[in-house]
Amino acid sequence: MKKYVLRDSVVFRAEADGALIYNHETGDVTPLNATAAFICESLFIENDDPERVLEEIKKRWNVLDEETVRSDIEKLIIGMKQLGLIEEKAS
């Protein structure tokens, strides 16, 4: 899986029930629910291993279906790429 990071123009703010992402370039705010916030913080800020993040989500949110989690992560990456919030991490 490719690695992504938040773009420099993007600010991540953790909140009690999720997170907010602010894009300085557009002025737009994107709310993330608790799961999406965890994925975003783990993958795009802390650069955790995707498989470890997947396992942690299954544990924390008591999700049995691994494919659902994998699909949710992929959807989040696609969505955030489309909004210009993340970019591929330079190797």
């Binding site: 907010l20 705010v29 709310p31 916030a37």
Partner: peptide, 11 residues
């Protein structure tokens, strides 16, 4: 104002 709203409410 949105500044006072929860993330759930904003979503």
């Amino acid at each position: 104002p949105p500044a006072f709203q929860s993330v759930v409410s904003l979503a």
